[in-house]
């Protein structure tokens, strides 16, 4: 359960988030979309505690975010760019994060098998391909079985097979009742994975509802055209 109340964030004079209000119930799979510079990343960073709000409040599972960190035990995050220390092996990285989280890595082996990371475990991270590094990121995000999962452009560097496996895994997590939040520019991917959409434009939420409803309201059959329409005429289908 994530609640955001009147969240504002400015960097100097630049107002990036202009009063965001959102309620994301547990177990919902939500896609965050919007043009570049709309504030998607800042929104996610605020939820993760990387960025501190200028004003407004955020609650994750009832805990108010104020520089505390325990709430992140329930969060798994897969960043868009996966860069790790060069002189660390994959299994050392997994051990390192395990030690930091002090949680049971219930799905570690499961994910290693699913993403076929077994042969990579003893390699240095600098020798891994971009796609394999993304898979390590996905493993780190999901191996502790957290309640809330954030994926930032998750399939950007993955080959079709890995991307397919990743989506399958996300579907499994979804059916297990996880709260899933994905940002992506690949609309077809969101169509497969999420059923709610948050459309962010100029630091405001311009649409938040089910994908089906968005398609009906915008009189489109595909998410891509519906979002394109929203970008061009934001007011027409706003909630």
């Amino acid at each position: 359960m994530i609640e955001i109340k009147n969240l504002k964030k400015s960097f100097g004079k630049l107002e990036v988030l202009k009063g965001i209000n959102l309620d994301i119930p547990s177990g919902q799979a939500t896609g965050i979309v919007g043009p570049n510079g709309a504030g998607k990343t800042t929104l996610i960073k605020s939820l993760l505690g990387l960025t501190k709000p200028s004003s407004g409040e955020i609650y994750v599972n009832g805990t108010k975010l104020n520089g505390n960190f325990d709430y992140r035990r329930d969060i798994g995050y897969m960043p868009q760019v996966a860069r790790y220390p060069e002189n660390m092996k994959v299994n050392e990285l997994l051990t390192f994060i395990r030690g930091l989280r002090d949680q049971d890595a219930v799905f570690e082996q499961d994910l290693i098998d699913q993403f076929n990371l077994g042969p990579e475990l003893d390699k240095m991270l600098r020798n891994l391909s971009g796609g394999n590094r993304q898979k390590v990121g996905a493993t780190l995000a999901m191996m502790f079985d957290p309640q809330i999962l954030f994926f930032d452009e998750p399939t950007a560097g993955l080959d079709p097979r890995a991307s397919h496996r990743f989506k399958q895994r996300v579907q499994t997590e979804k059916s297990n009742g996880k709260t899933i939040i994905i940002t992506s520019h690949i609309m077809s991917e969101l169509e497969q994975l999420v059923d709610h959409v948050i459309f962010v434009l100029d630091g405001n939420v311009r649409y938040y509802g089910t994908m089906d409803n968005l398609l009906i309201e915008s009189d489109e059959t595909r998410l891509e055209s519906a979002i394109a329409k929203l970008m061009e005429h934001p007011v027409e289908v706003a909630i």
């Binding site: 993760l48 505690g49 990387l50 520089g67 960190f69 325990d70 709430y71 992140r72 035990r73 969060i75 995050y77 960043p79 760019v81 996966a82 860069r83 790790y84 220390p85 994060i97 930091l100 989280r101 990121g137 780190l140």
Partner: peptide, 16 residues
């Protein structure tokens, strides 16, 4: 050099 890695570590349950 460790920018992305530090950011990933900051999203773990650990005090800054």
């Amino acid at each position: 050099q460790s920018r992305e890695f530090v950011e990933l570590l900051l999203t773990q349950p650990i005090a800054r």
